[in-house]
């Protein structure tokens, strides 16, 4: 079953001058159709201005498409009476960790969502406990968010979404402002939620390394989907990605260059282990040859 069903979406950014006259129209999305299966882990890649963040905001009714429909679990985001239900089903984590934490104490922030939904008190406490445990932040329950690192803040933000019992979490470049260790923590948390809790994850990013472990990658450019496949196949198309001014993971690039130089290495290498698998036998053979030549 598809949890997200976006069909033929158009979206414009309209810029108006002081007299309310339209000055400029920027088409952000044009005829975009994406459906996402329940329980999957999908990465959306694209360079700045490709429309990926615009798409994210359509997924829980923060903005509405000019044309086309967005269905979340069968609910139309235009239907105002179901807006809360849609936002509860499809939670969202934003880029800047500071600008999405509302309360001054971690647990109060996690409780913000359920409080808005009118969840009874005892149930809120249970959910906050549970959500903080799931993201590994239960030790910071009573801390002030200002004293946490960026990665910890993002995990609190994820807990805040988890406390609403969502079926799907959309993360809009959640690691863009984090250091490498914070980035790793956030990614691990998100993957765990996907595997253990079966939460559908839509991860929007421009770090190629982060997309390697996804079930599916959607590459966007100029408000359109240009590639949509599993990671290995996407990262086999190195030249195409370069044309879209996107890179590939470092290790994939290395493997690609070695292949171009004539080494028998397949396309779409994603991890160091995989590359070693091919390189070690090659090196051993070279060694034997070298030894043979010496003798």
């Amino acid at each position: 079953m598809n949890i997200i069903e976006a069909a033929h979406i158009f979206f414009d950014y309209v810029q108006k001058d002081e007299n309310d006259q339209i000055e400029e129209i920027n088409e952000a999305l044009s005829d975009l159709s994406i459906s996402i299966e329940k329980g999957s882990f999908v990465c959306i890649l694209g360079h700045n201005g490709s429309g990926k963040s615009t798409f994210a905001k359509l997924l829980n009714g923060l903005s509405l498409p000019k044309e086309g429909t967005v269905l979340i679990s069968g609910m139309d985001t235009r239907d105002e009476s179901r807006l809360l239900n849609i936002r509860k089903t499809c939670g969202m984590v934003f880029q800047n960790p500071d600008n999405q934490i509302i309360a001054n104490v971690v647990e109060e922030d996690v409780a913000f969502g359920p409080e808005n939904l009118g969840v009874p008190t005892e149930e809120i406490v249970r959910r906050v406990d549970d959500a903080l445990k799931k993201v590994g932040m239960e030790a910071y329950r009573l801390n002030s968010p200002n004293r946490l690192s960026g990665g910890q803040k993002q995990r609190v933000a994820i807990a805040g979404v988890m406390a609403m019992k969502p079926e799907c979490i959309v993360l809009d470049e959640p690691t863009a402002m984090l250091d490498p260790s914070g980035r790793r923590d956030v990614l691990r948390t998100v993957h765990e939620l996907n595997k253990k809790e079966g939460i559908t994850i839509v991860h929007i990013t421009h770090y190629m390394e982060e997309a390697v472990d996804a079930d599916r990658i959607i590459v966007m450019d100029d408000g359109r989907v240009v590639m949509d496949d599993e990671p290995r196949k996407i990262f086999s198309r190195v030249d195409e990605l370069r044309n879209l001014s996107l890179s590939v993971p470092q290790i994939t690039e290395l493997a690609y260059e070695l292949r171009q130089a004539g080494m028998p290495i397949p396309l779409g290498i994603l991890t160091r282990e995989e590359l070693l698998q091919y390189i070690i036998p090659l090196m051993k053979r070279a060694e034997r040859k070298g030894a043979g030549a010496d003798a």
Binding site: K57, N60, L62, L84, R87, K88, G91, M92, F94, N96, D98, N99, Q100, I102, E107, E108, A111, F112, G113, P114, E115, N116, L117, G118, V119, P120, T121, I124, V125, V128, G160, V161, M164
Partner: peptide
Amino acid sequence: RRALDLSMAMEARCYHGGEGRTKMRP
């Protein structure tokens, strides 16, 4: 800019005014 971001984050977490709100620590 922060205010704009925050209001979006609050909306995304179902904030819709004081009506029907419960409290974790009443």
